Amino acid sequence: MIRKTLALLLLGLFAAPLWAADCSTTIEGNDAMQFNQKTIQVPKACKQFTVTLTHTGKLPKASMGHNWVLGTAADEPGIIADGMKAGADQNYVKPGDTRVITHSKLVGSGESDTVTVPVAKLKAGENYAYFCTFPGHAALMKGTLTLAP
């Protein structure tokens, strides 16, 4: 009886991580203006989803900075245009822009930043886009984010 109980307990301890939702990801941005992921699927079971942006290139943020900005696909062009006007001091994100769900700071070579996506703000079936708003980067540095069923 004790062996059976111990075996069930150990099985439960080792199996639990298999059932847990993965509520985080790391995205790399490089000097070729590329993210290493083009899609992110956020499990609905997560209350918050964490994204860590890491700059894997060699260039400084003044010449090849990257950020990670999340909004709806429909809002992407306006967020980018207003971000360029905001400038580097504002991480190329318009202060108080309600279209932006979350965004990282601007990072350069070897730097990283972590942001949290409040999953309750995401809607099933909505088209979300993530992109870098450093001038000219969004043409290549973009991807889609979806809420998993």
Rank of each mutant, 00 (worst) to 15 (best):
Gly71Leu: 12
Ser109Ile: 08
Gly143Val: 12
Val69Phe: 02
Cys23Asp: 14
Leu122Arg: 08
Tyr130Val: 08
Gly83Ile: 12
Phe14Met: 11
Pro60Met: 00
Val51Asp: 10
Thr50His: 08
Cys23Ile: 08
Tyr130Lys: 00
Met84Ala: 07
Met1Glu: 07
Asp75Lys: 13
Thr5Leu: 07
Ala7Ser: 09
Leu53Arg: 00
Ala129His: 13
Tyr128Thr: 05
His137Phe: 14
Pro95Gln: 12
Leu10Ile: 15
Leu140Tyr: 04
His55Ile: 05
Thr116Arg: 05
Ile79Lys: 11
Leu106Asn: 06
Lys105Thr: 12
Asp97Glu: 09
Thr26Pro: 04
Pro77His: 07
Ala129Arg: 15
Pro60Cys: 05
Cys132Thr: 06
His66Gln: 13
Lys4Phe: 12
Ala15His: 08
Asn30His: 04
Leu122Glu: 03
Asn91Ala: 02
Gly136Asp: 15
Lys38Ile: 09
Val115Thr: 05
Asn30Glu: 11
Cys46Lys: 03
Glu28Leu: 07
Gly87Val: 14
Thr56His: 02
Leu147Thr: 12
Glu28Pro: 10
His55Glu: 00
Leu6Asn: 02
Tyr128Val: 03
Trp19Ser: 15
Glu126Lys: 15
Thr5Tyr: 09
Asp82His: 01
Phe14Gly: 12
Ala21Gly: 03
Cys23Phe: 04
Thr102Val: 01
Thr5Ile: 14
Lys38Val: 11
Gly57Cys: 08
Leu11Ala: 13
Cys132Arg: 00
Leu147Lys: 04
Tyr130Cys: 07
Cys46Ile: 02
Ala88Lys: 13
Met141Asp: 11
Gly57Asp: 02
Gly136Asn: 11
Val69Met: 13
Thr5Pro: 09
Cys23His: 05
Phe49Cys: 10
Met141Glu: 04
Phe49Gln: 07
Phe131Thr: 03
Gly96Asp: 02
Pro149Met: 06
Ile101Gly: 01
Asp82Met: 01
Lys38Gln: 11
Gly136Pro: 06
Asp75Ser: 14
Gly87Thr: 14
Asp75Thr: 15
Thr144Asp: 01
His137Gln: 12
Ala45Thr: 06
Gly78His: 03
Ala21Gln: 05
Gln90Tyr: 05
Gly125Tyr: 07
Ser63Tyr: 09
Ala7Gly: 07
Tyr92Lys: 12
Leu147Ile: 13
Met141Ser: 03
Asp82Phe: 04
Thr52Lys: 07
Ala81Lys: 14
Gln90Ala: 15
Ala21Asp: 08
Gly110His: 12
Arg99Val: 15
Met141Cys: 06
Thr146Ser: 11
Ser104Asn: 06
Gly71His: 08
Gly65Ile: 05
Pro17Ser: 10
Gln41Asp: 13
Lys94Thr: 14
Pro60Asp: 00
Val117Pro: 03
Gly57Gln: 03
Val42Met: 00
Leu11Pro: 00
Ile101Asn: 04
His137Tyr: 14
Ala120Cys: 08
Thr39Pro: 05
Thr56Val: 04
Pro43Met: 06
Asp75Leu: 11
Gln41Ser: 15
Gly125Met: 08
Ser112Arg: 01
Gln37Gly: 11
Cys132Ser: 06
Asp31Trp: 12
Phe131Pro: 02
Asp97Arg: 12
Gly136Arg: 13
Val107Tyr: 06
